[in-house]
């Protein structure tokens, strides 16, 4: 443990926290939109890591930020699709409860 590079590890831990919260949110929310929120949290946590690395490592100039941009774009796209899927699911099942999507139960 080195406390010299303070900032990086703090950011990393914050990113990890967001990430874990997103995982827990995905695992516990029964609402499909809730699961979607968890996905957003996960992506945000990863983004924080990217940007923190970009800032704290002089080798990287803008790589982290570019990647973060890409992630944001992809997140948006994915959110759109996910919402479309959820809406379809709602139309078919009249419910947004993910527990009722048991057709693939083996």
């Amino acid at each position: 443990m080195n406390f010299d590079a303070f900032g990086l590890q703090a950011f990393l831990m914050l990113g990890a926290l967001l990430f874990v919260c997103g995982i827990i949110c995905m695992a516990t929310k029964r609402n499909a939109i809730g699961v979607l929120m968890g996905v957003e949290l996960v992506l945000n946590g990863a983004n924080i890591n990217f940007v923190a690395f970009s800032y704290y490592n002089p080798t990287f100039r803008v790589e982290g930020q570019v990647f973060a941009l890409f992630v944001i774009v992809m997140a948006a796209a994915e959110a759109a699709i996910a919402l479309a899927i959820v809406l379809n699911y709602y139309n078919n099942h009249t419910s947004v409860d993910v527990d009722s999507a048991e057709e693939l139960k083996g």
């Binding site: 993910v98 527990d99 999507a101 083996g106």
Partner: peptide, 17 residues
Amino acid sequence: LRKLQTGSIRNYILFLA
């Protein structure tokens, strides 16, 4: 083994984690 496949997304996410 069949019991693993619950069909529930949340379980799958837990397993992932």
